[in-house]
Amino acid sequence: MLLREVGYARPGSLGEAIELLAADDGARALAGGQTLINVMKARAGSPDALIDLAGIEELKGIELRADGTLEIGAMATYTELVESSEARARPIIGEVCAQIADVQVRNRGTIGGNLCTSDPTNHLPPLMAALGAQMTIAGAGGERTVPASEFFLGVYMTAVGVGEVLTKITVPAGRSDGFAAVTLGVEGTCIASAAASVNGGVTIALGCVDAVPVVLHPGSVDEDAVREAVRDANLDPPSDVHAPSSYRKHLAEVLAVRAVNQARS
């Protein structure tokens, strides 16, 4: 419960935040804090400084463009995504966010924090990978855009570098999506998860089976094709106290089929 000493600043603009983050490579951006504060409580991580993004207007808001593209500010909370009428353009986003943790965490936790944490058990990395989202990252040198499939680099590691901030998640139009998970307790931590999108081609992203989401493109939505795609991925999932590797490997196949079936229905 007792954090190490830490600095804190609450910048009012994105530029200021980037400056503060660039000034100290031990500084970390603080979004909703629903993971980071816990890590610090355990003293498993101890940033020199927390740059609180809560006061930055540019990072807020959920917008629906005329072409159906969703632009989600990185500081949008899960609750906002559940309740937002704009986000309903891609209903799976609200459906999945409603399953994350609990009311309290959904009120504070943000899409940007969820993605930047890159915890393999998180819901949103595989979902965003399946939806083909684009991540906008801002730094001193300006903005760049990275597709979700390239955003996640490892456990707790993403394309966001020192002195950079994830500002926006852009989700293309589409409606035929699915998500399935086996969790620790009802709507608990994911033991294995799969997200699918069949808008045009078929994209599946598997969670909890590797350090980052495993993205697959089966040739069709047929169960056999989906199962074959998962088998061909030669998954070697981690074992832990909640599941042996073999079980996760099996679930990946089952959940991929279920996610695709939901997407088709």
Binding site: D102, L184, G185, V186, E187, G188, T189, V241, H242
Partner: peptide, 11 residues
Amino acid sequence: FYDYHVPHALD
């Protein structure tokens, strides 16, 4: 309580 899962309301 993250890894030691006790029943919650939904459970």
